[in-house]
Nucleic acid binder design. Structure first.
Lengths: 225, 225, 225, 225
DNA sequence: TATGAATGAGGGTTCATTCAT
DNA sequence: CATGAATGAACCCTCATTCAT
């Protein structure tokens, strides 16, 4: 016999989904409480107010996601830079696009995308605790992959290019699936996608390394008035 | 003497900014009307309701953006595939990240990102009119750049990788700027960024071409429960 | 070739219908103007404001109704009291239930019923000009029919009983038709109805005359708590 | 010490009065809430929306009215048809014109009249539950009073004539009191009025019975163009 | 710990009306 | 005479929150 989750945790799970799908303002505590089979006042009781619930959701999402899908392989695994890059990318895909983490609910990934778009004060803490370390890990990987030939600015740019590809799938899945009709749904294709992004990014980094001496010799594109 | 914009157009400009920054639900017509120095009822008079205003904004943003920054160079310009790729990427950056289009307002780019995240019914029309043609243009460019060696699935994947990098800057600018402190603000760096994405993507495409024979020989990563 | 009615008159006709169907408050000048193919501002132009339009409608309805269906037969017709009663009753039915008066529109009758229910200030004038003379005419008829045996209170009571029957058909037609399914629609049955009310009322008056000596020997009915 | 009515019931009472006096559209929830010493949102909390409140009012009015003033005397009372008719008529008068039922409020009777004039969907249920049974009861009484000599059409017509007189007092009281100055106010005169209507109707029915052989030999009255 | 009643702020929308053209 | 743009008041309703139980 399965013991049902206590009210507090049911609220966090459901709220993560609804906040992600609809945004903080558009999501209503009434709907969250109803779908979680809880009383309306339960939100205020457990989390003080709507924002408190949101903060709890945010912390819960990141702690679970990084616990389940860490960014670096266990120490005994290979230290080969390219394999670390592949591992990192794959973890990004699974972290927010796999539904395993939240009992089949799928809004949580979108909630993260929303925070990138419009960071709330609650996100500051997340950035320092989770995001910045990620940047450092990925920067080190990129640096290693490039053979140490890239300056910090180029490293950051490459890192952003890599993360951009991953995140894009997370938050633009509805449009990607509409435009690229014959592509498999993003959620069912995580291995193929991470493999593609890995190769693409590897080529990208190497090209940046190989064209370091070229200047950005393009004139600024003018708008046609 | 400068003739002020009529109420209708002022509303569209301001609404594009506020809808973009705050989202459809969180944005209030009261605030939009106030900032546009218009009466609250003017929204309903000109656009029937809040949603009508939103639709008008969406159409306005895309028509202006693609008019000012087309995706293909004028016919007399070089047909060199790589130059066409560079032109395309640069247009993407300028389209939604440059503030020229909307009188210095900056929310419009975010509004597009929101539509990618949560397409509204009003976006269907935009997808068919503007987005899908873009996909076709970029697919042709990628195919040409690859020397015709890529199958449709790989072409799409590469196209998504390219667009993903561009869009990521559009919608994650706040976080990027917070994490990569010493990087110049995205909006003032469009030429450098488009040049970087161009080189990175060129390398990515070529790598995909060069590793076509390799299989995706990675086992699915398991979550650590 | 038929010349279309000028805007002012079209507004009056349409407004009479809509005011009658929906009530003064619920009726909107927008709808009235649209159905009359007139500009919204036309109401204010021709009638100063919504209330001015309403007053014009009220005056128009009564002047037309009593002009088309007077309450007394032409002088050369019989002066027989019973025939005058029958004539009076029939005129009441035709006045507001026949659609001839207003180009097929049917709301006007209801508008009168609304005024009985909730007289507006605009109705004061109508009462003095049209209603009170009716009361006097009917009182005289009832007095004659009774052979002069009734005191003023009884006369008034009988007059109210007669008018009540007629008006009831005017304002309760929807319910009557729903309850008495096999009765012909009120509007198509005016001759039968006026004949019935005539006979019924004649019997009523005579009964009142014949039981003048009886006192009202009924105890007040108590409510069961 | 008197315990005050709970919010929900206070709202129903006040709303019945205001809806009756002003009509559904013209009545505002603000005013209702204020007069009931309740918060505006209480209406939506208890009744979902304005229409829900209206439905509750309608149901409340009829259930109370018919509970307090049933249409048939208790079984032990006389089964004399004329007495049943008198009892029925008196109940009609007291039902909606006596202020006892609603704590001195007087709009409820008008609300019913409004429903006769313009039935709302909410009235369908009332018609079947309360009105139709009334018709059957009154039809049986009329049939008995006539000695079984009337066909269904005549019975219905007589029933409508009786009800018409009663309802007329309910909904036209303001005009009646203005025209018949020396008549006592309707609300203080219910016994006299019900006695009058009883006698008048008795005479009416008998006259209909006695003139069954006469045809409706009147030509349709023509309008004078 | 949990709940149903109640609340005040603020939301979008409708409306009659005005004014310049 | 007629019109389209614009306005401010008032409407119903939703919302997060509180409080007594």
């Amino acid at each position: 016999m399965i013991k049902p989750l206590p009210t507090r945790e049911r609220l966090i799970d459901i709220a993560g989904d609804i906040f992600g799908r609809e945004g903080f303002k558009a999501a209503t505590v009434r709907k969250i409480a109803e779908e979680a089979n809880a009383n309306i006042a339960a939100v205020n009781y457990h989390f003080r107010d709507k924002e408190g619930l949101y903060r709890a959701v945010l912390e819960d999402i990141f702690s679970k996601a990084f616990q389940r899908f860490p960014s670096v392989p266990p120490p005994e695994a290979a230290a080969d830079p390219e394999k670390r890059l592949h591992f990192f990318i794959r973890a990004m895909f699974y972290r927010f696009l796999s539904r395993e983490g939240w009992g089949g609910l799928s809004g949580q990934g979108k909630l993260i995308a929303r925070e990138f778009l419009n960071p709330t004060p609650a996100f500051d803490n997340i950035v320092e605790t989770y995001i910045r370390p990620q940047k450092n890990i990925l920067s080190a990987i990129v640096s290693d992959v490039s053979g140490g030939k890239l300056d910090p600015d180029r490293i950051i740019s490459c890192a952003v290019s890599i993360i951009g590809q991953c995140i894009y799938y997370t938050f633009a899945a509805p449009i990607i699936e509409k435009i690229a009709e014959n592509l498999a749904p993003v959620e069912e294709n995580l291995d193929f996608l991470s493999d593609h992004v890995f190769r693409f990014s590897l080529g990208g980094i190497q090209r940046i390394v190989n064209t370091l001496h070229e200047n950005n010799g393009f004139a600024r594109q003018e708008a046609q008035p």
